[in-house]
Design a protein around this nucleic acid. Structure first.
Length: 476
RNA sequence: GCCCCCAUCGACCAGCGGCCUAGGUCGCCACCCUUUCAAGGUGGAAACACGGGUUCGAAUCCCGUUGGGGGCACCA
């Protein structure tokens, strides 16, 4: 049997990291065993679905590298891949269950149900449906029909137990008594979620359902539906949700939530991919793993049944590690849009020279802006900085000496610059820190930045001298 | 309230009855390197939730307690 997995996002907003991590596990498993990865859009909820969310979902999935073999824009022989276009299939299945007596017409109105639910809750009883319409007499039914009362199709939950061997959780048992007859088709004839997924999973020949563990209590219902419909029941793997530090489902208040957020914070797709794969699953010692290594080593059975906390610090570290492995050209390419976005137009050649210096010290792409600013645009030395770094007594003389030495340099390059600065430092009997820190502030406007000699080389002779002069004016 | 799931350093992962004096990674601390910030190097603190079993032997198996999470819709 061919292995077929699916990711089924409901695009009502940006894609959540937790969901994406689940998709990623599906993808890894599919790639690991040479199966098919399918993308199905669950757009049945008209109130929440938006076209923009749909487009950005596709874009973000592609950005992360989760390419699908079948789905929107790719096609495939088991389509359509938008759930909304499968409504008729769902309806037929619902009708069939009705005809076979596996479902029945329920004439209770939503208001009545809501009322009863409230009462049950108040009386601390089970809030579920009591099954009254399954016991309707012929006369009662006839009279409801006669008054044209609308009905919804409710699944008749059979006696017994629902059991499955979850690839992550192991054996899970539910007593069907815990599951009350649930609605599968609304009074307007449209299917509800459970019927929809079951029909679609079967129709798309899904063999393994890897999804969030918020679905475990849905699983008995879906197994029952599959059995009622005569489908092959797929394998299930329920992976836990991603948590924030407070052990609650990862959400806005923990920081970035969607993969778009992470991208906009300067994370690389490869790093995010690697990090997410290692959340809830992992190997003995390796942490930096390429996509192909992940594919090779991944196994759903080894995914933890316990939830994992997303640690932004570790993600940043990993992102930095990935940046450090990038080529100069790639760094340049990735950093350029960030500079542009922040109003810095950088010369390509210069940026290429900056790349190796930058690569060693940024953890996120957005940090490049701060590091590059002194090289590509005018600087400012604010008062606090000046007071802190330029106020020392030796600073004026130091600036003068360097300003005097630099013009004599034949070639404007790193080593010559270092020679001049060190010369000044030594002649004045200063330790390196006392000498270079003020110079650095004078020339870049900040106490932190790229290595001083390289930075000065890139800034150029003319601007360096101008900045020294300006800094000098602040000291007197 | 009922049902289901979970439980190793602060976090992620390793451990699948003896190799555990519990290992690796991030973070943290110290030191080294050093022109700032990083990066890199070396070392350190830091965990088997608790209580009962089973066994010659338990982090590993079983039961309970506690704690956490999820679900109980004419949402998906």
């Amino acid at each position: 049997m061919t292995v077929r997995l699916r990711a089924a996002p409901a695009p009502s907003g940006e894609l959540h990291v937790g969901n994406v991590r689940t998709f990623l596990f599906n993808w890894l498993h599919a790639r690991h065993i040479g199966g098919t990865f399918i993308l199905r859009i669950e757009d049945t909820d008209k109130k929440r679905f938006t076209e923009a969310a749909y487009e950005s979902a596709l874009r973000d999935l592609r950005w992360l590298g989760l390419d699908w073999d079948e789905g929107p824009k790719t096609g495939g022989e088991y389509g359509p891949y938008h759930q909304s276009e499968r409504a008729e299939l769902h309806r037929q299945a619902g009708l069939r269950l009705l005809a076979e007596g596996k479902a029945y017409r329920c004439y209770c109105t939503p208001e009545e149900l809501e009322e009863r639910r409230k009462q049950a809750m108040a009386a601390k009883k089970k809030p579920g449906y009591d099954g009254r319409c399954s016991r309707l007499s012929k006369e009662e039914m006839a009279s409801f029909e006669a008054e044209g009362r609308p009905w919804a199709a409710r699944f008749r939950v059979p006696e017994g137990k629902s059991t499955w061997t979850d690839l992550v959780l192991g054996d899970v048992n539910f007593d069907n008594q815990e599951v009350d007859d649930f609605i599968i088709m609304r009074s307007d004839g449209t299917a509800l979620y459970h019927l929809g997924v079951v029909v679609d999973d079967a129709g798309m020949k899904i063999s393994h359902v890897i999804r969030g563990d918020d679905h475990v209590t849905n699983t008995p219902k879906q197994i029952m539906l599959h059995e009622a419909l005569g489908n092959i029941v797929p394998e299930f793997a329920h992976v836990p949700q991603v948590f924030g530090p407070d052990h609650k489902r990862y959400s806005k208040r923990h920081g970035a939530t969607s993969i778009a957020d992470f991208r906009e914070m300067g994370f690389l797709a490869e790093a995010l991919f690697n990090y997410l794969a290692l959340l809830g699953w992992g190997t003995a010692d390796d942490t930096i793993l390429s996509k192909s290594e992940l594919i090779e080593k991944f196994s759903v059975e080894d995914v933890h049944a316990s939830p994992a906390v997303l640690d932004p610090k570790k993600l940043e570290w990993m992102n930095g590690a990935y940046i450090r492995k990038l080529s100069d050209a790639r760094v340049t390419e990735l950093v350029e849009p960030w500079l542009t976005k922040n109003g810095i137009s950088a010369d390509r050649e210069v940026l290429l020279a900056v790349a190796p210096l930058l690569r060693e010290r940024i953890k996120r792409l957005d940090e490049a802006v701060t590091y590059c600013a002194p090289i590509f645009r005018d600087i400012q030395i604010d008062q606090a900085t000046a007071e802190k770094w330029l106020a020392a007594q030796h600073v004026p003389e130091l600036l003068d000496r360097v300003a005097a030495g630099l013009p004599d340099l034949g070639n404007w390059e790193r080593d010559g610059i270092e020679y001049v600065l060190r010369g000044a430092q030594e002649k004045m009997g200063l330790n390196p820190r006392k000498a270079f820190q003020p110079l650095f502030v004078a020339i870049t406007g900040s106490p932190v930045g790229l290595p001083i000699f390289d930075a000065i080389a890139l800034i150029g002779r003319e601007r360096t001298l101008e900045r020294l002069a300006h800094a000098r004016s602040l000291t007197s």
